[in-house]
């Protein structure tokens, strides 16, 4: 049986764990390479004031 395991399911989950970890590593590294840039997000400077205006 694969990897010395007693069932296909256990060999599969062992490999899936390693692949998931490597996938996360590679995904993150892709963003290491790109230059850090500010977000296109707007914060609410005074949420309660905005809320009063909206109402």
């Amino acid at each position: 049986m694969w990897l010395g395991m007693g069932s296909f399911e256990m060999a599969l989950v062992y490999v899936l764990c390693i692949l998931a970890g490597l996938w996360c590593l590679i995904y993150g590294i892709f963003f290491w390479k790109t230059q850090d840039r500010p977000d296109d997000v707007r914060g609410a400077s005074d949420w309660e004031k905005e809320e009063r205006e909206l109402q």
């Binding site: 590593l25 995904y27 290491w32 500010p38």
Partner: peptide, 22 residues
């Protein structure tokens, strides 16, 4: 501080958890 930092964090987080519960 930025979305890009959050995506970078995926690499640290994934390997960390693999090395903990795994």
């Amino acid at each position: 501080k930025s979305e890009q930092q959050l995506k970078k964090a995926v690499s640290f987080g994934g390997i960390f958890i693999l090395c903990m519960t795994g």
